[in-house]
Write a protein that binds this DNA or RNA. Structure first.
Length: 443
RNA sequence: GACCCUAUCGUCCAGCGGUUAGGACACCGCCCUUUCACGGCGGUGACACGGGUUCGAAUCCCGUUAGGGUCGCCA
């Protein structure tokens, strides 16, 4: 038995959680769960300038939303705290003094720099394999600064100290740190500490291959929370960026991913983020979002879009939402899809009008109106029967009635099942809207 | 610029010396259908380039090119 795995996710509170960061967290989580190890969350907030509780909350929210729980860290506690770098001053000071008395540091205009070992460094990366970087030349690899003149600590130093103190066994982080790793390794050596294993995860790029930065569409986890994505879908998609089960399946239970996740299966090449594919995967998960969960998520999506649901009876809202189950790929599509339920005057789609509000269809819609008016029970079954009977009477396909009716009542030519949406809307509103349509100029 | 990583359809992933190079998203047809979706069937589409190694390379090696990363008193 080798020693138990301890991994960490160490984000900086910048006010948002990048999908790349989220995937790093995910891979750490997967590895911890796969090995029965421990995931530590550590907040790297040495940069006092941009450091707020809200920014930290964004990290918690993102991780919670994705279902990534940590075993040690803020809100959890643990033996290696505190888990905010801003609160670990004494620890850093201790290591700093050690380095200083061992002669590894020198003062450079008030800042403290670490005297590098001038030799090649070889690393055995769990993902990238053997990588050798020659640190011999001070011109190309200058000594790093570890402490500012104002006493502030620099990332490389505190990162290493914390990995030592927190007994981290595996550092799984973005590939942007691969070139920094020799510096870290040298720090470990100077501190006479055992080095962890490293695994550098390839980066996530935009669809066009350019670097994904803060502003890019879909770069932050918050955009998925707000966009009405299913967290399991986003998590599943992130699993597939750089890792695969090797058997062509894509929709996977997280338990299975945990079971099969191996660092040796992690890709070495960067991956482009494909929102279309995420949207598709999300739609697969949306098919399974039903009942209460759909109601809750649906209401939230509508309210986010500015729909005032308090104006409608609760049964009406739930009935309306029920007709949308399994019909939208992402909840953010819901307001457009179901908006006709919640507005007093609907706008008729011009293209639809040109196609379905014709002289031939006017009498058909009139007949539909008459048939509906005669219905005692206005439910889906009765509506369907009435439409079919009317179609038979007029000697045409039911589709000839469905299209103008849908357009008159919803304003669109796409939407939920006509029979069901009419039932939810209710006879009064339906007749009203048909009348309005029939009176439209040019119809 | 130096150094490091990477290179299979537009995108994600499979392939790890011998395959008609496979799957998914997207796209295009057809079918199903109360619309739109879903689903089913089919199609377009890739081994970056050049050298080796080998009886035989998408698979191994070298170079070129391209993309990404690092080179901060940011993390």
């Amino acid at each position: 038995m080798s020693s138990p795995v301890r991994v960490r996710f160490a984000p900086s509170p910048t006010g948002y959680l990048h999908v790349g960061g989220a995937r790093t967290a995910l891979f750490n989580w997967l590895y911890a769960r796969h090995t029965g190890g421990t995931l530590v969350l550590r907040i790297e907030d040495t940069d006092k300038a941009r450091n707020s509780t809200e920014a930290v909350q964004v990290i918690y929210d993102g991780l919670h939303w994705l279902g990534l729980d940590w075993d040690e860290g803020p809100l959890k506690g643990g033996d290696c705290g505190p888990y905010f770098q801003s609160e670990r001053e004494e620890i850093y000071l201790r290591y700093f003094e050690q380095l200083k008395s061992d002669g590894f540091l020198y003062d450079d205009q008030g800042a403290w720099r670490f005297r590098s070992f001038r030799e090649p460094v070889v690393m055995e990366d769990e993902i990238c394999g053997r990588v050798e970087i020659d640190m011999s030349n001070p011109e190309t690899h200058p000594d790093i600064t570890i402490r500012r003149p104002d006493g502030g600590w620099i990332f490389h130093f505190v990162n290493v100290v914390d990995d030592i103190e927190m007994r981290i066994t595996h550092v799984l982080r973005g590939e942007d740190h691969l070139s920094n790793t020799p510096k870290h390794l040298q720090l470990f050596r100077a501190l006479r500490a055992t080095t962890p294993r490293y695994g550098h995860i390839p980066l996530i790029l935009n669809k066009d291959g350019s670097k994904m930065s803060k502003r890019d569409q879909g770069a932050s986890v918050a955009s998925y929370i707000e966009g009405g994505f299913v967290p399991e879908a986003v998590r599943n998609y992130l699993c597939l960026l750089g890792w695969s089960p090797k058997d062509d399946r894509e929709k996977l239970e997280i338990d299975e991913v945990v079971q099969r996740f191996e660092l040796s299966n992690v890709n070495r090449s960067n991956a482009a983020f494909d929102l279309d594919k995420l949207t598709w995967l999300n739609s697969e998960y949306m098919k399974e979002v039903t009942g209460e969960r759909f109601q809750t998520m649906g209401r939230a999506a509508l309210e986010r879009a500015g729909v005032d649901l308090s104006r409608y009876p609760s049964e009406y809202v739930s009935g309306a939402l029920e007709t949308c189950v399994g019909k939208v790929r992402v909840l953010s599509e819901l307001p457009a899809y179901a908006g006709f339920y919640f507005s007093d005057s609907i706008a008729i789609n011009p293209e639809g009008a040109a196609k379905h509000f014709t002289p031939e269809s006017h009498p058909r819609l009139t007949a539909v109106r008459a048939a509906f008016a005669g219905l005692e029970t206005f439910d889906a079954a009765a509506i369907e029967a009435a439409l079919k009977a009317t179609a038979a009477q007029l000697g045409g396909k039911v589709g000839l009635l469905v299209h103008p009716t849908r357009l008159a009542v919803t304003g669109e030519n796409v939407g939920p099942s006509l029979y069901h949406l009419l039932e939810v809307l209710g006879k009064v509103k339906v007749l009203e809207r048909i009348d309005t349509a029939l009176a439209v100029e040019g119809f």
